[in-house]
Amino acid sequence: MPLKSKRSRIEPLSPPYDEEAGAALALLGHPPIQLFRVWARRPELARSIAGWGSYYFSQRSALTLRQRELVIDRTTALCGADYEWAVHVAGFAEKAGLDAAQLASLADGRPADGCWDATDRAVLEAVDELHATFDLSDDTWANLVAVADEDAALELVLICGWYHAVSFSVRALRLPLEPGTKPIGSL
């Protein structure tokens, strides 16, 4: 269930940043969104997240950009993480080739919806099953490996878990939406 609070429980850092926070945020290579500015309150946390987290998967992933965004968007929608959903939809939906019907399905539809091909469906079925059971059946694993490969399937599991953690964070922190973004299901 999406949160309606407009006030963050922990205020993100604002420029000018101290030397440690500034160095951690510089690892991103782009202006930091609120979530990263909250993490930068503890620069060692921000550095470790920037060094592992989504940056590994966005730069070296065995998943395609589209597959990665299906995993992230569906996971954040299932977790009711408006902030993270909005950031990803605004930044990547067009690049990943996601249309309005697909975004609506990611928000509150099912993998069996008619807007998905067999590859997308296998990815979404894996995400939904991981969310519901914290595991993948042999059939779901086999379907996923058939449309991707074992490396991509492993990354899907890790990204899904990572974005559960991110979803927990943005919800518990009550981060308001970034300017110009829209919550789950409001496209």
Rank of each mutant, 00 (worst) to 15 (best):
S14H: 02
S14D: 01
P15Q: 12
P15N: 05
P15V: 13
P16H: 09
P16K: 10
Y17P: 03
Y17L: 14
D18L: 12
D18K: 11
E19N: 10
E20G: 09
E20K: 13
E20C: 07
A21Q: 05
A21Y: 00
G22R: 11
G22F: 11
G22Y: 03
A23C: 02
A23Q: 12
A23D: 12
A23Y: 05
A24H: 11
A24T: 06
L25F: 06
L25S: 02
L27I: 08
L27E: 15
L27R: 15
L28H: 05
L28N: 05
L28T: 14
H30I: 09
H30Y: 14
H30C: 05
P31Q: 13
I33D: 05
Q34R: 12
Q34N: 08
L35W: 02
L35Q: 02
L35I: 08
L35Y: 03
F36D: 10
V38E: 04
V38Y: 04
W39G: 01
W39T: 02
W39N: 12
A40N: 07
A40K: 06
A40W: 10
R42C: 10
R42Q: 14
R42P: 01
P43G: 09
P43C: 10
E44G: 00
E44R: 09
E44I: 00
E44Q: 08
L45R: 14
R47M: 12
R47C: 13
I49E: 12
I49L: 15
A50I: 09
W52K: 14
W52C: 11
G53N: 11
Y55L: 14
Y55R: 13
Y55D: 06
Y56R: 11
Y56P: 00
Y56L: 15
F57S: 02
S58N: 10
S58Y: 10
S58A: 10
S58C: 01
Q59R: 15
S61I: 11
S61L: 09
L63E: 03
T64H: 07
T64C: 08
T64L: 07
L65G: 11
L65N: 08
L65Y: 06
L65I: 14
R66P: 00
R66L: 07
R66V: 06
R66A: 11
R66N: 02
Q67L: 04
Q67S: 14
E69Q: 14
E69D: 15
L70Q: 04
L70P: 09
L70G: 09
V71N: 04
V71C: 10
I72K: 06
D73I: 04
D73H: 13
R74S: 05
T76R: 04
T76D: 01
T76G: 01
A77N: 03
L78C: 00
G80C: 01
A81I: 01
